[in-house]
Design a protein around this nucleic acid. Structure first.
Lengths: 320, 320
DNA sequence: AAGCACTATGCACAAACGTGCAGAACGGAA
DNA sequence: TTCCGTTCTGCACGTTTGTGCATAGTGCTT
C-alpha cells in the first residue's frame, strides 16, 4: 500500500466516522471518486484503523447473560443466533463475533496463548487486523499425533493469528500427547521446549475452546487419532467431562489423578489460571458438560458462546 | 425506553457490527421491520452501546501530527478540514471530532473538569452518550461577570456533559474574576467552595480550550465584560499570550507574577498539570500564540486541533 | 371507559453505499 | 522504448440504508 493511501484512509475514516460526512463529500475533499472512498473505508476497517466495539451494559443486560455472569463470575458474551442455523453456521457466527470481541483486547507487547481445534480454527478465520508491536502468539499445546505431525492444521491457526496482529508466532513442535510420561519429562527439560514454556508462563491472554467427552460429534482430540483405544476407554470409564488444550478435568473442575494429563502437552490448569485474560469460545450445545467443568475449574475470565448453549448452561437439568 | 427495546438494540448491534448481517436479515430475526432495525442501530450508536474509535498509527501517521507529537510531547489529533470552511464551520467539525475522541476516554468513577467558552460549548453540543457510573462533571472556573451571573452559558455546557455521561454536575458559582484578591482568598475558605476545589484536586480528566490575547476575534474572556479597561490594559502591555480556564500565562509557559491570576478562579497551572489526562481543544489558527504558551506550560496531554492550526503550529514563523 | 398526549411502527421514497467490470496508471523486464 | 502483468480508478448498476409521514399502539388522566 502506497504511503499516501493509508493516510488517505485515515483521513477518510476520520471524516466518515468522526464527522459524519457522506462518502460523496469525502470523495470531493480527497479529489477522488466515491467508490474509492468506499474502498478506503473498508480497508481502514480491515486494517484495524477503525475499531468498532460493543459495550454491553454489564448490569442491565439480557437476563441470560447476567445470570451466567453472576453464577460463574465470568465476563460473558452471548452470541445471538437464530435457531434455524446448523452447527457449522452457528460456529461461524460465534467465531466471527469472538474474533471481533477479542480484537480490542489485544495490545502491544501481549503474549497470546492460542489453543487449536475446530473452534479456534473458525475464530482464526475471522480475525480483524490490528497493528501491535512486539506481540507474540504462542501455541498452548502440541499438535502432533500418530498419523501426521498435525503441523499444518494447528500452524495455520497460529499463522492467521500472527498475521492479524502483526505478531511473532511461536509454534510448539511436540505431539499432542506423549506415549510415555517420562518422555514428556525429558522433553520439558530441553531448552527449545523451555523457551516455549517460559513464554506460556508469561502469557497475558489465552484463547481456547473446550472439548467435551460426550459431545454429539466429538472434538478433534477424541476422534483425530490423538488417543488410542486404551486411552479412550480410560476416559470413558472415568468421570472426566472435557478438556481445555488437551488437559482433562472432571465436572467439579478437579484434575488431580487424571493420568492422561501427565502425558498431555497443554498448560496445567493451575498455570492457565495465572493468565490475566482467559478467553473461552464455545459453540454448540453439546459441549455443555465440558464447559461446565471448565467454568467450575475457573479456567475462563471471558466466555463467548452461542445463545442456545447459554440457555442450556443456566438450565439446571442441562446435564443430560 | 422500554426494557426489551434496549436489549433488541444490543442484539441488533451485535448482529450488524459483529456478524455483518444486513438490516434486512436482522429485521427478520427480530420479527420487525427493517426501518425499526435502522432506528435501533442508530439508538445503539447514540446511547454509546456501539463505540467507534479510530486509532491513528502513532508512529507512521501523517507527518504533521507526528511532528507536533515529537516536539511537544502530546498526543495529538489533527482534525482534517477543507480550507473553504469558515471559522464557525471549522469549529463545528473540530468540536464533533473532539467530542467523539473524548468519549472513549471517559470511564466510570471519573471526575471530569470542564472549562467553558465557545470551544467547549461547541464540543458539548456534539457529545455522544456513554453510560458511566458515579462520574462527576466539575466546573473548572467561575463564570459570573459584571453584567450577568454567566450561569446559563456555562451551565448549559456542564449540563450537556452531565447528561451525555450520566454524571453528576458540580457548578462553580463564583465570578470568573474577583475584583479583589482578598475576596477570593476569603471565598476559597468557604466550605461550599472547598467542596468544588477538592473535587478539582481529584480530577482524572480536564477538558479545556485556550484563549489567545491576540486572536483575531478574541475569546469570551477578553470581550465578554469579564475584565475592565485596566485589566485589559495590563494584559496588553504585559507579555501574556493567552489563558486556560481564565488563568493566564506567557509565551514560555510561565505564569508567576501575573497579578490577574490572583483574582482568577481557574485552577493554577501547577494544579492543572497534576491531572492525569488533560485534553486541549483548539480551533482557529488565530489562537496559535495562546496555544504555544499552553503547550510550553505543559498543560495538555492530548491536543485536538484543526489542520490549519496544526500547520501553523509547526511552522517556525507562525508567531505572526 | 373514553379521551388525550406521546411514542413506536411500517410503508414508500430518496439517499447513500458496495462491487463487478473495463479501462487507465504504474512498475519492472527485455 | 515497448511490452506485459499488476494494481488502481471510475462508472453503472443493484443493494442497502435513512427518514417523513400516516397509522397503530401505549399509558396516563378524568
Amino acid at each position: 500500500m502506497t504511503p499516501s493511501r493509508s493516510s488517505d484512509a485515515l483521513r477518510a475514516a476520520q471524516l466518515y466516522y468522526l464527522q459524519d460526512l457522506t462518502m460523496d463529500a469525502i470523495a470531493r475533499e480527497l479529489r477522488t471518486s466515491r467508490s474509492t472512498v468506499s474502498r478506503l473505508l473498508s480497508s481502514a476497517r480491515e486494517s484495524g484503523l477503525v475499531q468498532i466495539q460493543i459495550r454491553s451494559p454489564l448490569d442491565t443486560g439480557p437476563e441470560l447473560a447476567s445470570m451466567i455472569r453472576a453464577e460463574y463470575k465470568v465476563d460473558v458474551h452471548v452470541v445471538p443466533v437464530v435457531d434455524t442455523l446448523n452447527e457449522a453456521e452457528t460456529l461461524d457466527r460465534v467465531a466471527m463475533q469472538a474474533a471481533r470481541t477479542i480484537g480490542p483486547l489485544v495490545d502491544s507487547n501481549a503474549i497470546i496463548g492460542v489453543a487449536w481445534g475446530s473452534t479456534l480454527s473458525a475464530v482464526s478465520r475471522h480475525l480483524t487486523r490490528k497493528i501491535t508491536h512486539d506481540s507474540v502468539i504462542v501455541q498452548l499445546n502440541g499438535a502432533g499425533n500418530m498419523q501426521t505431525t498435525g503441523i499444518t492444521y494447528a500452524s495455520d491457526i497460529m499463522r492467521r493469528f500472527g498475521s492479524a496482529y502483526g505478531a511473532r508466532v511461536e509454534q510448539f513442535p511436540v505431539p499432542a500427547f506423549f506415549d510415555h510420561a517420562a518422555t514428556k519429562k525429558a522433553m520439558w527439560n530441553e531448552r527449545s521446549v523451555q523457551r516455549i514454556l517460559q513464554l506460556q508462563a508469561r502469557m497475558s491472554i489465552a484463547i481456547f475452546g473446550v472439548g467435551s467427552v460426550d459431545a454429539d460429534y466429538p472434538s478433534h482430540v477424541y476422534a483425530g487419532g490423538y488417543l488410542d483405544e486404551d486411552d479412550l476407554n480410560v476416559l470413558a470409564t472415568s468421570d472426566v467431562v472435557g478438556d481445555v488444550a488437551t488437559v482433562f478435568f472432571r465436572a467439579d473442575g478437579s484434575a488431580d489423578g487424571i493420568t492422561l494429563n501427565e502425558r498431555s502437552t497443554g498448560p496445567d490448569l493451575a498455570q492457565l489460571r495465572q493468565v490475566r485474560r482467559r478467553i473461552c469460545v464455545v459453540s454448540g450445545a453439546s459441549k455443555i458438560n465440558g464447559l461446565r467443568g471448565a467454568l467450575a475449574a475457573g479456567l475462563a475470565t471471558d466466555l463467548i458462546l452461542d445463545e442456545a448453549s447459554a440457555r442450556r448452561l443456566v438450565s439446571f437439568d442441562g446435564a443430560s
